[in-house]
Design a protein around this nucleic acid. Sequence first.
DNA 1: CACGTCCTGTGAAATATGTAACGACGCGAC
DNA 2: GTCGCGTCGTTACATATTTCACAGGACGTG
Lengths: 231, 231
Amino acid sequence: MTLYNPTEEAEIPEVVIRRLPIYARTLAELLGHGIGSVSSNELADRIGVTAAQIRRDLSYFGKFGKQGKGYDIAYLVSEIHRILNLTQDWDVALVGFGHLGQAIARYRGFRESNFRIAAVFDDDPEKIARPAGPEGLEVLSHARITDVVRERGIRIGIIAVPAAAAQQTAELLIAGRVVALLNYAPVVLQVPDHVCVRDIDPVAMLQSMTYYLDKSYLRAHAHANGLVEDK
Amino acid sequence: MTLYNPTEEAEIPEVVIRRLPIYARTLAELLGHGIGSVSSNELADRIGVTAAQIRRDLSYFGKFGKQGKGYDIAYLVSEIHRILNLTQDWDVALVGFGHLGQAIARYRGFRESNFRIAAVFDDDPEKIARPAGPEGLEVLSHARITDVVRERGIRIGIIAVPAAAAQQTAELLIAGRVVALLNYAPVVLQVPDHVCVRDIDPVAMLQSMTYYLDKSYLRAHAHANGLVEDK
DNA sequence: CACGTCCTGTGAAATATGTAACGACGCGAC
DNA sequence: GTCGCGTCGTTACATATTTCACAGGACGTG
């Protein structure tokens, strides 16, 4: 009944899924340093989580390690990639080609990943038909989002438009059968249940850090730097 | 003993702190629409959380609502800002002035916030001394990070350098008494306990979404769009 | 092949976080 | 003033997530 069974629908917690890319990235780094295997302890130190958490997270999906040895990195990376559906390339639609959109289009991290910007949209007539990025893409009109995304079978969208336009953009993408949205606009998007959203909101992140930056906190921890760094 | 007491050190969960900026932003939006008060239910709908959660979150800090009426928006926003230490402006050091750094420097969201980019650094000699942003800032050498940040009393840093340089950049900032880092590099930073880090990693976010984008998921939810959108 | 070491996978316990439910209060109607 | 409605703040409960701790496999050694 409550038997553990990784192949059945075990309803894996989303926090676990969110950690897997970090595991994969860190493992790939180690591989790049010529390291072939690693224990949960060593990996945990490097990532800043506990070893038990890593072992538990992985155990949702199967058994990937060897007792006494640890994990074979190349194998574990490939398994995580398989779990996350990263064995294929994914086409992505980028909406908004202002400073932010252009920075995203040029971002090296995407180039080195499995994600390809396959279409770029903007509603500024001056930008339309301009070349977007190195692969000979051109900026398409906002009005064509739904049709183009649907025709090309794109399931992932990046929203890099001003806050006021974000909700409508999301709706156009979803109408074109996009089901995953990376949202850079500082707005909570209203989307149907089957659509997955991740927000990137640097201002909110800074604002949540300043909570810890009041005088008493800074004073309490002043020595941590002061004593070491002051000559 | 276990008495509820908002003024004592109640150790407020970090998840709660992270939600406050979203509450504040959404409330400010409502205020912009000329709405003066709101119930936890209405606010919850707009943000996509439960009303109980909003009431519970706020109760960590005090009593801000009126029974039967809801919350006075202007008052609640000002209280949240007070809690998050947003009643002052915060100087921020930006390290890395490539495409990403330039997009950050120009980002409208920062302009409209309490955060001011007060110093910009890069290690590319060609960029140094170039004007950075509209306020007459100039790009300073990487080598001056620690000194400049310390002299100006900057406590917040934004890391927008390549992955390989991120750890060293963090150390230079921390040596200059920075205690909050917004990290755009796809690396897990190793920092002392008193330093607060938030990571922005769009690739990791996309990779965690593709987990849900396998064939069976897309099939199971196909009707959600198909039936509605197909003519 | 017996022993010791190392490290996984996992059940059980401990924490943390989220939700439901309700007493109490404010306000307007009558 | 009393009633009824709406909504907060809070407690008790439910669920989710993390951590502990240990049985047991793999491997090297003598």
